[in-house]
Computed example of a mutant assay.
Amino acid sequence: MIIRAPETGYVVEKNVTTGSFIRQDNNGSMFTISNMKDVWIWANVFESDISKVKTGYSAKVTTLAYPGKVFEGKIDAVSSVLDPDNKVMKIKVVLPNTDMLLKPEMFTNVVITNNDAATSVSIPAKAVIFDSSKNFVVVYNSKCDLKVREVSVIKTVDDITYIASGLNAGDRVISKNGLLLYDALAGD
């Protein structure tokens, strides 16, 4: 039996095999065909980040196959339900696939750009000291004036930590050997 596709594209899903019975009462699709010019990426968002992800935000996507290439897309949909097994929420990122580099079932890394106008203080991640379930930094005022200050961390991305409270713009913090200074100052 010859089955003709209604349009050109790539077979991205095949639900029949040699020897399968094709019946009229089976309304499932035999094949899924896509032109793959626009692709969807389903990404996991951890529960702690749900409030920071919204429809319309920009997304930068990288793959293992093309480590130097960044694909740009937008969040098209945000799930309303968390996966009960791994406590993540699914988001759908839509992006153009003009060079046909993105393939079904590829592993990707997705970085979302938050478009809200909120600002925060950022410091090197090495400057943050975690002790007794709290985050601290050592603030440098002068050679003989160092203070330990508790901070509230929003998020750490790569080697930058974003601070919600506890620091002001322009405050200088110790980012090298801060733990030694913290131990000496906190012991007072």
Rank of each mutant, 00 (worst) to 15 (best):
S152W: 14
T32F: 01
F21N: 15
L167K: 02
L167S: 00
V157L: 12
S29A: 11
T98P: 15
L146W: 13
F107V: 04
K74W: 01
N135C: 09
A125F: 13
D83E: 13
Y57V: 10
V53E: 02
K37M: 09
V111F: 10
D85G: 13
D145A: 13
N27C: 05
G56P: 09
G73P: 08
I129S: 04
D131L: 07
V157S: 10
W40V: 04
T62Q: 06
N135I: 07
K14D: 08
S20K: 07
A59S: 09
G68Y: 11
V53H: 06
G56S: 08
N168C: 12
V151Y: 02
N15H: 10
V53K: 03
L82R: 08
N86T: 09
D131W: 14
G19P: 01
E72Q: 14
M89P: 00
S79F: 08
I3W: 02
S120Q: 12
V53C: 08
K147M: 08
V70K: 01
T108D: 02
L180P: 15
S122E: 13
L181K: 08
K147W: 00
D171P: 06
S122W: 11
N177V: 00
N26Q: 12
V16L: 05
D49K: 01
V148C: 07
D38W: 00
D131N: 14
N15T: 07
K143D: 14
V70E: 05
A184L: 15
D116P: 02
I163M: 05
E7M: 12
I33M: 04
F21E: 15
I22K: 07
G68D: 12
T98Q: 13
P84H: 10
E105S: 10
S34C: 06
I163P: 01
V151I: 11
K143V: 14
K126G: 00
F71I: 07
S34P: 13
N114Q: 12
F136T: 01
F71G: 05
